[in-house]
């Protein structure tokens, strides 16, 4: 039936702005302005004691890249591998909860999220202990002659990626579940009715329909993983340092604000470019 939408009542025209303005003002002051400050700071010279002045020192970006370019490459590769691994682990899990769990659906969902309420740092420290050289995991694998970097798990890139995958898993599972759960099982039945074997039905029907969840999940995993440095600190060796480690050190230890700001800005711009390319490629504008 006809359902004319949206009726503009007299006098309500200014209401959305009244509702928006406190929050938007907050985001402008504490999100946009700091970004501008960060950008400005990256182009300043000076030192922490004397203060910094804006000199439009663009050169800092090439200096930053020579010194820390490999950190960027490492951060993005680790985040990429962790995202793929998280997708591989989370998809069957989300699928099982959405289609196979029956009345255990909600309980399973709770079980999936619950581990992540154990503090982020505490569970990363737990991984540190689990993967330790003298731990049972390492010794078991060693006795099985499992190939490992330097015969150990802790302080390797494997451990860092393992930690990144683990820590951001719920950000992958939840959007995947949300989009899978929305699929009407009858469409999949219709596909099998139309001669699609289960694998074809999945490839042609289920997976395409779950794509919004895949896009949202991979973004929500990749972005924090690329910026993280807790996993690299606890689980990696000095050779596994990521951009976050350097930003943290330059800001909080060396107080070299311009180079730290340049690192941060580059990180932001790189992420935003990757995200917008990815969203355009995936054709899903609806992620917010």
């Amino acid at each position: 039936m006809e359902l004319p939408k949206g009726r503009a009542r007299r006098g309500s025209r200014s209401l959305p702005y009244v509702l928006l303005s406190p929050g938007m003002l907050w985001l402008v002051i504490f999100f946009l302005v700091p970004m501008a400050t960060l950008a400005a700071l990256s182009l300043q010279t000076g030192d922490y004691e004397q203060g910094f002045t804006l000199t439009w020192n663009w050169h800092i970006y090439s200096e930053m890249w020579t010194r820390y370019g490999h950190h960027f490459i490492r951060s993005f590769s680790y985040a990429f591998v962790a995202t793929v691994a998280a997708l591989v682990i989370a998809y069957p899990l989300a699928y099982a909860i959405a289609f196979k769990a029956g009345r255990w659906k909600n309980l399973l969902l709770v079980l999936v999220i619950a581990p992540f309420f154990t503090s982020f740092l505490v569970r990363t420290l737990a991984w540190q202990a689990i993967l330790a050289d003298n731990g049972w995991v390492t010794s078991t694998l060693r006795s099985l002659h499992f190939p490992m970097q330097d015969g150990r798990l802790l302080n390797t890139s494997f451990a860092v990626i393992c930690g990144l995958t683990y820590n951001f898993l719920p950000f992958m599972v939840l959007p995947l579940y949300a989009s899978l759960e929305r699929i009407d099982p009858r469409v999949v039945e219709a596909a099998s009715d139309l001669y699609a074997r289960p694998i074809t039905a999945f490839r042609r029907v289920t997976f395409p329909l779950s794509l919004p969840g895949v896009v949202a999940g991979t973004l929500l995993t990749f972005i924090p993983a690329a910026g993280d440095y807790v996993n690299a600190t606890f689980l990696g060796s000095p050779q596994d340092q990521m951009v976050g480690n350097v930003v943290d050190k330059q800001f909080l230890v060396s107080n070299d604000y311009p180079i730290a700001s340049a690192l941060s800005m580059t990180m932001l711009v790189a992420i935003l470019i990757l995200v917008s390319l990815y969203i355009r490629r995936a054709g899903t504008e609806e992620i917010v």
Binding site: M1, E2, L3, P4, R7, R9, R10
Partner: peptide, 16 residues
């Protein structure tokens, strides 16, 4: 689409 529901909603005051 003939406008009957819109008429009704105007009587109800849900549509101006």
């Amino acid at each position: 689409g003939c406008g009957k529901t819109t008429t009704l909603r105007m009587v109800a005051g849900l549509e101006e």
